[in-house]
Design a protein around this nucleic acid. Sequence first.
RNA 1: GGUCCCAUCGUCCAGUGGCCUAGGACACAGCCCUUUCAAGGCUGUGACACGGGUUCGAAUCCCGUUGGGACCGCCA
Length: 471
Amino acid sequence: MTAPISSADYVIITHCSPYRTYAQGTTHPSRRIKMAGTVRVRFAPSPTGALHIGGGHTALFNWLWARHNGGRFILRIEDTDRERSTKEYEETIMAGMEWLGLDWDEGPDRAGDFGPYRQSERLEIYHHWANRLLSEGSAYREGEAVIYRVPQGVSLAFDDVVYGHIEMMSDTLKDIVLIKSDGMPTYNYAVVVDDHTMAISHVIRGEDHISNTPKQLLLYRALQWEYPVFGHLPMILGKDKKKLSKRHGATSVYEYRDMGYMPDAMFNFLALLGWSAGEGNEVFSREEAAALFELSRVTKRSAIFDMEKLNHINQEHLKMLDPSTRLDLVEPFWREMGLPVDEHSREYLAQSLVVLGGRGQTAREAAGYSDYFVTFDAVKKRYDGSDIDEAQRATVRRYVRDLLACPEWKADLLEEFTRTWSTEQAVKMKEIAMPLRMALTGMKVSPGIFEVAEQIGREETKRRLAHYNLL
RNA sequence: GGUCCCAUCGUCCAGUGGCCUAGGACACAGCCCUUUCAAGGCUGUGACACGGGUUCGAAUCCCGUUGGGACCGCCA
């Protein structure tokens, strides 16, 4: 068993912020933190779109590692692309993370010793270190831009926590632009400066960054900074094994919320892509996952996003919900369907979902399967009763008359009565239960029909049967 | 084209030289339960990409082949 990666042996070489000076005898926070071996990880999205599945996956693994170690999870906004970055997307990304339950300890909206947490507000820092490189002669100017001169013959190696030893010669690299002509830093440069100055201990990001890492290594070297620990995550692909894109349907985590998926399930499902908590342990909470998570147990092979599995995990989580929480989840979908939710008490609606049981893989589906509890109109809309011939109708009427006369309107008693009745009258259960089901729900499939009858009540049952001329 | 990465059932994972005639989960099929469906229970179909080594022994280590993927932007 490999020992969990720790940053205990971490020592920072240079302190960083050009903004602050520290009195003699005191140390910069990053130095204190790294000496103390605190795990600090970050998710660094660029606000050029909503939080997509891949980003959510990366954020989630960072969160897991932070929480597993009692460390800090930092949100950094990489908004150096002036053209495409917007404040709206920044907010959408944060909302998406909150929805997934990924809370961060430091970020643009949260206090921290290592801010600012938006790259566009850290320009002085980037220029400070770029100037250093310039004065040392390892970088040169080209117009307004600052470019790092890549030395030849340098072996760039690092030990990735998940991919193992990776090594590459500097010879194949072109010179690296540090500062663009517009004064903004490039990704490969900013990421190095930020990860170091924010005292990031573990850089956990998508596998598509493996080939960027050697460049960054070069920059750490030039700045005489200690490397963080790197851990790359497998990519998430669509069904066709191609990078996940709009063609594969929903790509932003928000779309899954709107489809009726639970954040807990989405979290659970995403955690299962590239990691496992051990055999027979596939449904778990965030806390359980955090306790069990090991970066060194992350898989190398890219994974395919499989909706079927998501559906199953979602259903499992849906089943575990208490009635009130489940109602909170389903109610919006009933409203979206235009059902008169407000005509009922919360108790009635919650109990209806208890009767529905584990049916439906998403909240949206559950809402669709349970509309008849909310309104009879939904039933009338899809069922006209024309499938029953006169002979059947006569039988059902006889049964219904006796059923309605039952002293107590309780599911188990109604069922018992029906069984007895069906035996005595030599009528199959199916022949009376099915017409009853159709009249009450308008559907061929439903929970136990006597439970449905109990839930909607004797009067409502009578009303629905009357409407279909079954009284 | 160059560099780098990956390779176990359809899919997600387990497996780190002998416990593997390869295990679990999803999906699929069948059966049971049953007023329908879902759930649940049982059973089944189904994979170590290929070829060479190393070894007493390889899914596990090495090499090659093939197949996928990523990166090679003053995007991130």
